[in-house]
Amino acid sequence: MDETQLIAAARAGSAEAFAALVRRHQQAVRGFLRRAGGDVAEADDLAQEAFIAAWSRIGAFHGRASLRSWLCAIAWRKLQTARRGAQRTRARERHVAQLEPSTTRLDPASDARLDLEIALAGLEPEQRAALALCLGADFSHAEAAHALGLPLGTVKSHVARGRARLAQALGADHAAE
């Protein structure tokens, strides 16, 4: 079945068709959330939440954007909501304890990955997200703009600046070796 047929079947209530859509797009959504959020466990949890939300809203998907862009839009909103919740929690706990870095960061086996993670962490959240979509998942600027709910020009600028900063950060690391 092609994607249009799967979407139609999922809209009609077929969990099997929806599972096939999850199978097709889980890599893009999880990869996007991992890069945009930086925490593997949280990214996978949010990806699950995003797919479950997509199941309940698939009737509202009219195909004006690609399905992966629509899924990433849901995932991005989930990530933003989680961040707001985390910020509120941190604000409450700030006077009690020092913040500790996440213990489930990206696989530390590779120095290059760590370099990338550190470089990504230095970017603004929207720049990270735009880069994760446009460079990491091969989204067009228009698709990324739809997914992130940002104007096209802003996405182009985020990608250009983010790419330059990432290259600079990674280049500097490489140069230091």
């Binding site: 999850v22 199978r23 889980q26 890599q27 999880r30 699950q48 797919f51 880069l131």
Partner: peptide
């Protein structure tokens, strides 16, 4: 390549968890 490096490929456990 670096951005794609650890993106999961096929993952039936994830699909099963969602469904």
């Amino acid at each position: 390549a670096a951005l794609l490096a650890d993106a999961p490929d096929r993952d039936e456990a994830f699909v099963a968890a969602v469904t």
